[in-house]
Design a protein around this nucleic acid. Sequence first.
DNA 1: CAGCATCCGCGACGATACTG
DNA 2: CAGTATCGTCGCGGATGCTG
Lengths: 110, 110
Amino acid sequence: MTSPRFNCGLDAALAVIGGKWKFHILYYVAQQPRRFGELRRLVVGISEKMLIQQLRELEYDGVVHRHDFQEVPPRVEYSITGFGTSLAAAVAPLCAWGVTHMEAVVALRD
Amino acid sequence: MTSPRFNCGLDAALAVIGGKWKFHILYYVAQQPRRFGELRRLVVGISEKMLIQQLRELEYDGVVHRHDFQEVPPRVEYSITGFGTSLAAAVAPLCAWGVTHMEAVVALRD
DNA sequence: CAGCATCCGCGACGATACTG
DNA sequence: CAGTATCGTCGCGGATGCTG
């Protein structure tokens, strides 16, 4: 926890998965390849604009891979990369923490 | 990673440490008790308004503890709670990931 | 020193309509 | 189906000044 450069490491990590939606997108894509419309349904509350925008950034950062099947009707799949997998593993403990302490947290929100 | 309820767990976690600054504040407070002015200097770029606001939320969520020494000149220390410690532990892997992949990330930003 | 109050810009984000 | 384009808003967060 008090490891050297923690802060700068955090900056790097947050530069990649920062923002409101990327955690969630990463979660679903990490499970299995996902189509665009699929993600739109899974990530509750996200708009198309945000979804495509965040996906583009994740792709640019090498976290996900975009595969266009060149079909009609259009079909595109987003899959996780090796890089993304390592990131997902780093995020997993945070999720686990959330699961464990969820009750305590939601109790405060009422 | 594909554990059940990951997503909801994430929601709970992000409700507590979401936002632009809390990761950083948590980092410094986790190391040792910190005074207000100290944090203002450590968390580079944060404004007083944001700092106090985020500290209040972290306090409300039971992540940090605020100790007012009732002195003049004023002296207040923020320390981490047991709850906060568990959260910091969950965030640590993300930081470690950032440290490891920092070069790759910053390389893209140029 | 440790805050609080106020003003306000700007960009994140949403809603809607449209296209190949 | 998988986007693109455009417009509008909302509130995050910065800047500044003041107080006990």
